[in-house]
Every structure is written in structure tokens, then in C-alpha cells.
């Protein structure tokens, strides 16, 4: 076996060392944020915190947890993420199948695929989009967080490329048995595509969890904000250059430690879900088949 050779063992040691170094490099900022969230306010404001908390305090977490708006926004985020991912998966899965066919089999394929690609590149801008959302009655509706993001051309393209990797023989066998396209899609394609579905689910989840701008623009009531929007509104500093300032306000704005706590809590769910999904799709892949 190759991994028993001396050369490979030496390589392996260096390789792991190098990868660990990269991994550490990546988490330094997050540790910094974590350290700030557990530090006292005065130390954080003076930028004295490095990678370890200064004057340890859990005050920031208490404040965050006592904020009902924060907790509520987590629920809304979970709801939109679950629903949004489900809708995206269903629509993407369905759309990718015909698009993965050859032009000779599905003659309108070119038209459809350009329809998708074109939509990815051109957009009308914020104002017309807002007008459409308004005419559809989606302003101030929870569904505005779910529906407009349903089709992501990038995901459709990923999915259809996964489909193309599925051996033709499988499909042909099914069709000979008299199965229609729908049956083929759900009986044959679905079971072997779990890993790719997991990948797409992950992309979609991350997208929904981190989206904030839609909530801000299309929801009229800040109590309905998802977490990312909520975080955005508390963390981002205001453009203060032209505002009349008073010490009371500045005191409230500089909530360095509370912000850090919220950033951390906000990233937590994805951090927890990710390793789980990762294992799931690596496992599922072994069922997967060779490409081309």
C-alpha cells in the first residue's frame, strides 16, 4: 500500500503540519472575537484584548440572552432557513434533471439554460425589484425571505453537473422497464444524488442563514427580522459623521463585548450543523458513481 512507504509518511507529517497551521490561521480572528465577548467592556473598548479574555466576564452573554428580540430572530432565521432550503432543493432538483439531458433528447434545453444563465447575469436593480415584490403583496410577509431566493442558477448548474455524472446505463435500464421521467428521477436519481443534494442544501442553508438585506428592506416591522438582519442592525456602526452625538448615545453604541457575543452566537448554528452535514455527504458519496 502506498501509505506505508517512507516517502509518503514523511510527506504525511509535513502535510498534516501544514494543514493544521492553515487551520489555526483561519480561526485566529474568531478566537479574537470570542475573547472580546468574554472580556470587560473597558478592556474591549481600549482594544487591549488579544486572543485571551481580559478581565473575564459573561455580562455580554447575559445581556444577549435576555434580549427577547434576539431570541425571536433566531426562531425566524431557523424557519426561513428550513423552508427556504426545502423549496430550493425541490425546485433545483426538478429543474436540473431536464437540463442535464442532451439537446437531442430535450430540444428546448438551450432556451431554458440560457433563460437561467441570463437571469444570473442581468438584473434590473433594487427599485424595480422592490416594485415587483410590492405588487406581489410580499412586502412585510415572511415569504419574502423564502420565495425570491428559490432559484439560484449556480446551484442548478452544480446539480445538473452531478446528474450528468450518473451513468447512463442506470437511466436506460429504468426506462426500458417502462418507468417515466418522473419515476426515473425519484427512483433512480434521488437515491444516488444524496451527496450532491447535501452539498446544495449546505450552500442554500448558509445563504439563508446569512442573508440580511432582504429582511431589512422588505419587512416593515423589526420584530420580524431574521437573525442576520438583527445582527446587522446592532453590529454595524452607523454613519455618525453628520449626526448629533451625545455621550448617552455613544455609550450605547460602543457595545463591543455584546456585539462580539452576538456574532459568535449567530455563527454557532452553522458551525454545529456543518460537521454533521459534512459527514453525511462524505458517507453518501461512497454510494455515488464515477464521473464521465
Amino acid at each position: 500500500m502506498y501509505y506505508k512507504s517512507l516517502g509518503y509518511r514523511v510527506f504525511n507529517v509535513f502535510n498534516i503540519g501544514f494543514l493544521i497551521f492553515l487551520a489555526v490561521l483561519c480561526i485566529v480572528p474568531l478566537i479574537h472575537v470570542l475573547a472580546i465577548s468574554f472580556s470587560s467592556k473597558a478592556a474591549a473598548d481600549a482594544s487591549l484584548v488579544g486572543l485571551w479574555p481580559v478581565e473575564f466576564s459573561i455580562e455580554a452573554y447575559k445581556k444577549t440572552m435576555n434580549n427577547p428580540a434576539f431570541l425571536r430572530s433566531i426562531l425566524i432565521s431557523v424557519a426561513r432557513t428550513v423552508l427556504g432550503t426545502a423549496v430550493t432543493l425541490a425546485v433545483t432538483f426538478l429543474a436540473a434533471y431536464p437540463l442535464s439531458k442532451d439537446n437531442s433528447v430535450f430540444r428546448s434545453r438551450s432556451f431554458y439554460s440560457w433563460l437561467f444563465v441570463f437571469s444570473m447575469i442581468f438584473n434590473g436593480g433594487l427599485v424595480p425589484f422592490y416594485i415587483v415584490i410590492q405588487k406581489l403583496g410580499l412586502i412585510n410577509s415572511f415569504w419574502v425571505l423564502v420565495l425570491p431566493a428559490t432559484v439560484n442558477t449556480f446551484l442548478v448548474i452544480l446539480m445538473l453537473n452531478f446528474f450528468r455524472g450518473i451513468p447512463k446505463e442506470l437511466e436506460e435500464a429504468a426506462l426500458i422497464d417502462g418507468a417515466g421521467h418522473f419515476k426515473t428521477l425519484f427512483r433512480i436519481y434521488l437515491p444516488v444524488s444524496l451527496p450532491s443534494i447535501a452539498t446544495i442544501a449546505l450552500f442554500s442553508m448558509v445563504f439563508h442563514w446569512n442573508s440580511w438585506f432582504d429582511g431589512l428592506l422588505y419587512l416593515n416591522d423589526s420584530r420580524d427580522f431574521p437573525l442576520a438582519t438583527f445582527l446587522q442592525t446592532v453590529i454595524i456602526q452607523r454613519d455618525m459623521s453628520s449626526m448629533s452625538m451625545s455621550p448617552q448615545e455613544m455609550e450605547l453604541i460602543s457595545q463591543t463585548t455584546v456585539n462580539a457575543a452576538q456574532i459568535f452566537i449567530g455563527a454557532l448554528p452553522i458551525l454545529l450543523v456543518y460537521p454533521f452535514l459534512q459527514r453525511f455527504f462524505v458517507k453518501g458519496m461512497t454510494l455515488g458513481s464515477v464521473k464521465e
Partner: peptide, 15 residues
């Protein structure tokens, strides 16, 4: 090919 068009319909409506 009609199943293909049906499968694409939801995505096309959204687009």
C-alpha cells in the same frame, strides 16, 4: 418531453 417542461415550470415561474 412534456415531463421536462413540467419539471422546469416552478423554476421558470420564479425566474
Amino acid at each position: 418531453t412534456w415531463p421536462f417542461h413540467v419539471m422546469l415550470l416552478p423554476a421558470v415561474i420564479c425566474l
